[in-house]
């Protein structure tokens, strides 16, 4: 199978459309008969990544690349970046505003959820400039 690539724009502060890229990809993966457990892990990572861009980041991009042996999810945005990635990865750490906390965001669980559900995760960030989160998922039992 050749690889299939899709990309979606994510707009900063756009809570109305937040999650739509993840839902579209969930449908696509179902149509492709990808393992349901893997689809669920990708849904969690995509959603948390999209919400982080909407809440904390600048405008961004949700990209997915689907291959027979691996799926790569990349969520990037144009800043303000993450000054301390190790701190951001700690369960419970959050800079969410009170308004966002009232909406149920800001548990500081998004990045830990992503890290737990991806086979591998890499975060790159240039403070003041941009952030990119790359997640790799291995499709077991396929060749």
């Amino acid at each position: 199978m050749s690889s299939l690539k899709k990309s979606f724009n994510i707009r900063s502060r756009d809570f109305i459309h937040a999650g739509e890229a993840s839902i579209t990809v969930q449908q696509l993966l179902k149509q492709m008969r990808i393992d349901p457990a893997l689809i669920r892990r990708i849904a969690i990572c995509g959603y948390e990544g999209e919400m982080n861009v909407v809440m904390h980041g600048g405008d961004g991009l949700y990209r997915v690349e689907i291959n027979s042996d691996r799926i790569v999810l990349e969520i990037s945005d144009q800043g303000p970046g993450i000054p301390d990635i190790a701190k951001a990865m700690e369960k419970g750490f959050s800079t969410a505003s009170d308004e966002h906390r009232e909406m149920g965001f800001g548990a500081g669980m998004g990045l830990p959820n992503m890290d737990k559900n991806a086979d591998e995760m890499f975060i790159e960030s240039v403070p003041g400039s941009r952030t990119r989160v790359r997640m790799l998922f291995l499709c077991k039992g396929t060749k």
């Binding site: 969690i44 149920g104 737990k116």
Partner: peptide, 29 residues
């Protein structure tokens, strides 16, 4: 929402006090 994303079982009925549109994306995903 991140706790629900982490822990809600498939096929659930979800009890919450959150009322904004993002709950629907969580339920679908």
């Amino acid at each position: 929402l991140s706790e629900v994303m982490a822990n809600a079982p498939v096929g659930s009925i979800w009890l919450t006090i959150q009322v904004h549109q993002n709950i629907v994306a969580v339920a679908v995903l």
